[in-house]
Amino acid sequence: MKSHRMKFAVLIVAVALITFGWITIGTSEEEVPYVSIAELLEKQDTWKQNRFRLGGLVEMGSITYSPDRLSVDFVMLQGDHRLPVHYSGLTPDMFKDEVEVIIEGEYQNGVLYADNLMTKCASRYEVEITQPDSDASQGI
């Protein structure tokens, strides 16, 4: 009876270890750093992979579609930092100037070749209501 319990315990531990190992390997091989443009430019040599995920705004007037419209070039903005992006594929409905996007792809020769372009939907579901500047109307 005792040894039987041991067998089950060993089995459970084995399953746990295999799961843990499996998850760890999967994570380390599929990980994509979520970086800022500044981090990407400064530390580009220290990353072992060249696949990155970034979030930022589409620079006003930077969107240029290819003639067949199947790919697009634009500049992603994060404060003062700019990053040229090339994306192949149909752009999402919400993709336009000054929209917040998340991109994922490979960084090569100063351009991020994105294969994944998502428009962030916080702005999709929630709309800003603009309010008049209340301080100004108060006077002195």
């Binding site: 799961t19 499996w22 998850i23 999967g26 994570t27 599929e30 990980e31 994509v32 750093p33 979520y34 970086v35 981090e39 995920r53 994922e104 994944n116």
Partner: peptide, 27 residues
């Protein structure tokens, strides 16, 4: 656990390694 781990990984990795690391559909 695998799903929870992958979902929380950006937060966990930022806390531990200082960089936000994401894992997506491939993971």
């Amino acid at each position: 656990l695998a799903v929870l781990w992958g979902t929380m990984f950006p937060i966990l990795s930022e806390a531990v390694r200082g960089t936000k690391i994401t894992v997506g559909s491939p993971y």
